[in-house]
């Protein structure tokens, strides 16, 4: 398998803040590789380095076999890039946007239509509409079509699903999956941890550092404890009560329940009694599978406590 990106020891500093610290990773051919992390983790900076828009302070980076620093002009021909804000001309129509990007990359819409047809067909009925008047989901599809129009070997998508509703998001991931058939490697970033499961491999990133790189299932399995999930109507009380219980290692809200770990990975009836004492009558506690978010939390805590 060919390496599409190999980066080692990438660091980048801005005036005040260290954006990236010693980042190393590899991306293989035809995989969907996700950078998952909160805002300000350094995702955009890293993507700009990969797309040759920024120079790293330190480290080496090879993209598509080319040095991203020296070979940037050659490299730019083979990358499809979709920046955080959908880079569309708001005053041009859908069709004009697509045609423009096609000519800029020295191709035509016709030539690569089969590649984008799946995506573009959704918005084609509106090809005469001004891009500024499209909904978020449609803008996203158009921006993706534009990024794909020159049949790039590497597609770099910076937070493509931010600000887009859940339906469009889900569709978007379906589309990315289909693109894999065309031998396109996809690098994607997102702050939404639940989207990690849609990637082949992910890197969890926080404060400019990579916490973990693996396939999402393995990352979940990396959770080092037995995880339990507790439910009761009085959530706030429940969290506090669980934290007071001596056997508890951690308790934190998670969706409609509270996730708990125990010092010895198990609990007994004394927990129910403890909860009853503070007035929480109905509690159901079940063993639960850790999610990416649980693992992310665990890794973050480890990082902060050394």
């Amino acid at each position: 398998m060919q390496e599409i990106i190999s980066a080692s020891g990438i660091s980048k500093k801005f005036e005040a803040a260290q954006a990236l610290k010693d980042i190393s990773f590899e991306v293989n051919e035809s995989e969907i590789f996700g950078f998952i992390g909160p805002d300000g983790a350094g995702k955009t900076t890293l993507f700009r380095i990969i797309t040759t828009l920024l120079l790293p302070d330190e480290g080496e980076i090879k993209v598509l076999g080319l040095d991203a620093i020296k070979g940037f002009l050659e490299l730019r021909k083979n990358i499809g890039y979709m920046p955080g804000r959908f880079s569309l001309y708001q005053d041009l129509t859908v069709e004009e946007n697509l045609n423009f990007y096609a000519t800029v990359f020295g191709t035509t819409v016709k030539e690569n239509y089969d590649l984008i047809s799946d995506i573009y067909s959704h918005i084609e009925p509106f090809r005469k509409r001004i891009a500024g008047k499209l909904s978020g989901g449609m803008k996203q599809k158009l921006a993706l079509s534009c990024a794909l129009i020159h049949k790039p070997k590497l597609l770099v998508l910076d937070e493509p699903t931010t600000g887009v509703d859940a339906v469009s998001r889900s569709e978007f991931w379906d589309m990315l999956k289909k693109l894999k058939q065309h031998n396109i490697t996809i690098l994607v970033s997102t702050p939404y941890l639940d989207e990690a499961m849609r990637c082949n491999r992910v890197a969890l990133i926080q404060n400019g550092k990579i916490l973990s790189i693996d396939n999402p299932q393995k990352i979940r399995e990396g959770f080092s404890r037995k995880l339990f999930s507790a439910k009761a109507p009085e959530k706030h009380k429940l969290i506090n009560a669980l934290r007071e219980y001596p056997g508890t290692l951690s308790a934190y809200p998670f969706g409609d329940s509270v996730h708990i770990t125990f010092h010895n990975d198990e609990f007994d009836d004394s927990l129910y009694e403890h909860l009853k004492k503070v007035g929480i009558e109905k509690t159901t506690i079940t063993e639960s599978e850790a999610s990416i978010e649980d693992r992310f939390l665990e890794l973050m805590k480890k990082g902060t406590t050394g």
Binding site: T162, E293, L297, M300
Partner: peptide, 19 residues
């Protein structure tokens, strides 16, 4: 949206408490 998982938890706890 966009905050790290730890902050997110702290935030929801603030919301629970306010509620």
């Amino acid at each position: 949206g966009g905050v790290d998982p730890i902050t997110r938890r702290q935030f929801w706890e603030m919301i629970y408490e306010t509620a």
